[in-house]
């Protein structure tokens, strides 16, 4: 057995040569950093060697869960990813349904191409555009003044009002990704058997009935899989939009775990606490993802990789 394995390995040396260097790369860049997790259990001092570090057990984790700031950051993370999840799903499915009803192929193509555009710009560019749009002299305030909802001189400083941040984040994410997220649903819709629509026509079903009773059930498997996958990503609320749109005024609502990790780690060089927070996030994500994968397999709808 052993022998034949090595024999095969030598026989397949070209395949080995083509892949093993990248396995080594994988271990260095993806697995080796896990070693850094030990720092979360130490009172880490950069000048000391590994054996000289003082071990403190779960002290940093205990601190996190009594720290008001971390609890607020955790709340923001869950709130923003929750908003993203619900809003992202509802808007993408709605847009896909509406696009699916368009018979004018050229118009449909145009809307699709335009709606993909914001996906291809960076969050830096997007944040700049959002700041301009929401500024005191931005288009939103201009419209509000023109329609008489607010008076001139009462312009709203949207990014300066803390409890507006989640809505701004949700709306920005939808604006950027809604078109992109329709791709999977639209592909699933084209796979629906046309005879189902014909049968519905025979029964005298109108447009809405067909959307509700044929199209939506037709894409249900895709919706279920994506929903499960996204629940696995509940700890991932993003980093760039919060970092770029966040400011001193809205920090209580914009700061999430990723920003907490960055601020403690890079700006304050408190590696131990930063790694403990990041580790907590990864472990929770791992549990969620594993659970999601198990559920996906059980439902038998499809497999995640």
């Amino acid at each position: 057995m052993e022998k034949s394995f090595f024999k095969k390995l030598i026989q397949q040396r070209m395949l080995v040569l083509m892949s093993v260097p990248f396995v080594i790369w994988l271990f260095i860049f993806k697995y080796l950093p896990l070693w850094g997790w030990t720092i979360a259990f130490q009172k880490y001092k950069p000048a000391l060697s590994f054996s000289q570090q003082k071990w403190v057990g779960f002290e940093h984790f205990k601190f996190l869960f009594t720290d008001e700031r971390f609890l607020r950051v955790l709340r923001n993370t869950l709130a923003m990813s929750g908003i993203n999840l619900v809003l992202g799903f509802v808007t993408a499915i709605t847009l896909a349904l509406l696009l699916n009803e368009i018979r004018l192929v050229a118009f449909k193509r145009l809307v699709q191409t335009v709606s993909y555009l914001p996906h291809f710009i960076s969050w830096v560019v997007a944040a700049g555009i959002i700041q301009t749009t929401l500024a005191n002299d931005g288009i939103i305030n201009e419209i509000l003044v023109a329609t008489g909802i607010i008076h001139k001189g009462q312009e709203i400083l949207f990014l300066g009002i803390p409890h507006y941040f989640w809505s701004i984040f949700g709306a920005s994410s939808v604006w950027k990704e809604v078109g992109w997220n329709t791709i999977v649903y639209l592909a699933a819709m084209t796979a629906i058997d046309p005879s189902q629509y014909e049968a519905a026509d025979m029964d005298g079903a109108g447009r809405f009935r067909k959307m509700w009773n044929v199209t939506l059930p037709g894409i249900k498997p895709v919706i279920v899989v994506l929903l499960i996958m996204n629940i696995g990503n509940l700890m991932e609320s993003g980093f760039e939009p919060q970092y770029l749109l966040g400011n001193g005024m809205n920090v209580d609502f914009s700061e999430n775990i990723d920003i907490f990790v960055l601020k403690y780690g890079i700006e304050q060089s408190n590696y131990s606490l930063s790694i403990a927070a990041g580790m907590f996030k990864t472990v929770v994500s791992l549990i969620l993802l594993t659970a999601a994968n198990t559920i996906a397999k059980k439902t038998g709808e499809a497999r995640l990789y």
């Binding site: 896990l34 990790v261 960055l262 930063s274 790694i275 580790m279």
Partner: peptide, 8 residues
């Protein structure tokens, strides 16, 4: 399924 994290 995992990520070493920013600092590591």
């Amino acid at each position: 399924y995992f990520y070493g994290g920013l600092i590591p």
